[in-house]
Amino acid sequence: MKRLIPVLITSIVGTVLVFSVFFPMAETWGEDFSLFFDIIAVFAFFLGGGNLVRVHLIKVLNKKGDWKFSIVTLIAFAITLTAGLFKFGSVDIAASVTAEGTWMQTIFNNIIAPLSSTMYALLAFFVASASYRAFRAKNREATILLIAAFIILLGRTPLGMFMTGWIPEWFSIAQIPNLAVWIMNGPNLAGQRAILIGVGLGVVAMSLRLILGMDRTYLGSDHD
């Protein structure tokens, strides 16, 4: 029983939504689902946020490892929650919680924004170290990868023109920057499309397996 009902829910809801696109009266059901989902996600956060507090509290109580940083996390979490729930700094209680002048907006602009854009910017370094390590002519596939990346990289610098600018106009496609443009619009496009078509079919088969209840470990077990 504990397992049968969820499996039935999945199958019925799934089947209904698959067919909803074909019936004008049901076309908006997908949007309704998104709405339900947003509400469910808020409740789920009580479990997630609770887990966050629990994990860090245990660390602090046991003075385990980096427990001092756990205190920082807990305090930061508490401050943000309080500031947001009571809309600190908000002139108008009906205004958005992140409106101009609120604490939430200040927190976002001065802490979250610089932190996440710096984290994002680390990519510049990792792109370099990954190129150094990965673009090696180990076998045929790796060599093709290397050549494609190399042409595009060269094409995006003046070096590309510098090296191949002598090629006459009628064969200018062989000039590296032009070649780079072509690779993006030709072979790259073809590869992308093959991947997308495959994904489309893969999703169909996986969804079918889920709706048919063939794959259901995510529903837990009968044992408890």
Partner: peptide, 21 residues
């Protein structure tokens, strides 16, 4: 700066291949 970064990355790709061979 972007061009310089590209050139340095290209240089490292070449160095990586030399090391490998």
């Amino acid at each position: 700066p972007q061009t310089m970064a590209h050139i340095v990355i290209i240089a490292f790709i070449i160095i990586g291949n030399i090391t490998y061979f």
